[in-house]
Simulated scan of single mutants.
Amino acid sequence: MASMRRLALFDLDHTLLPIDSDNEWGRFLCRTGRVPDEAAFNAAIDAFYAQYRKGQLDPVEHLRFALGAFAHRPMAEIEGWRQEYIDQVIRPVISQSALDLVAKHRDAGDLCAIVTATNAFVTRPIAGLFGVAHLLGAEGEIRDGQYTGEPEGVITYRAGKLIRIDAWLKDMGLSRNSFDEIWAYSDSHNDLPMLELATHPVATNPDTILRQTAGARGWPVIELFPLVG
């Protein structure tokens, strides 16, 4: 009898992490003097996050803002910033409950991916901390070894996550139909398209709208940790 084939898709911020890694990266850059106007930058972070929570975010505008913070810098320099951020901000907040959730799927042989609207430069090493080899994040254009500040490709936000998931699977000679079960975990109503593609959607530390949707549809709800911010 053939073994069951399963796909596990995880959002990152407020799902596997109790923080928003995008926002906290920006605030880290402010604290460490790496943006020219700290007050204006923090205000922009707050404004974009309010739009996100309402489902009104312009993903292109937001990604340009996020990428602009380190565009035209030598890659070695910004990779050093990122390592400081990972060590100071991300490692201390990773919970055993989140690690255990991912490990349960990974150890079962499931194909696992983190699918996040946060840019891939920031989140790729975070996926590594969870032992997840596949990261689908928002990509920035690179020219002459530096980020230009412009987005590249389909942004992993709302329905864009589905496009990127399908393209990733196709690159491996797979499709959604290749799997007997698809598990999807997210905290946000913005991820309803990804949750709806799953045979096993799980509302994880859900926001108010997703909690109500999960209740109406009979989806399981899990709380991995108290959220921060």
Rank of each mutant, 00 (worst) to 15 (best):
A108G: 04
D37M: 05
L99W: 01
A103E: 05
A69P: 04
D171A: 15
R53Q: 15
Q83L: 14
I114W: 02
H14R: 14
H189N: 09
R211D: 11
R53N: 13
R6F: 08
A167S: 14
K161N: 07
L195S: 12
A50N: 08
A127V: 02
D22N: 12
I86A: 00
T156H: 03
V202W: 06
L192R: 09
N177K: 04
A133N: 04
S3R: 12
H105D: 05
Y49V: 08
W168I: 04
A120T: 08
K104Q: 15
L29K: 05
R158I: 08
R217D: 11
W219D: 04
W81C: 01
G26H: 10
R6K: 15
E223L: 07
H62K: 10
T156E: 05
D87T: 12
I45L: 07
V89Q: 08
A138T: 04
V221Q: 12
L162V: 07
E139M: 10
L101I: 09
I78F: 06
G153I: 01
K104V: 04
Q212R: 13
V60F: 00
Q96S: 06
L67W: 04
G149I: 10
P226K: 03
W219G: 02
S3P: 12
F48Y: 13
W81R: 01
G131I: 09
D107H: 11
F130P: 00
A50V: 13
L16G: 06
T116I: 00
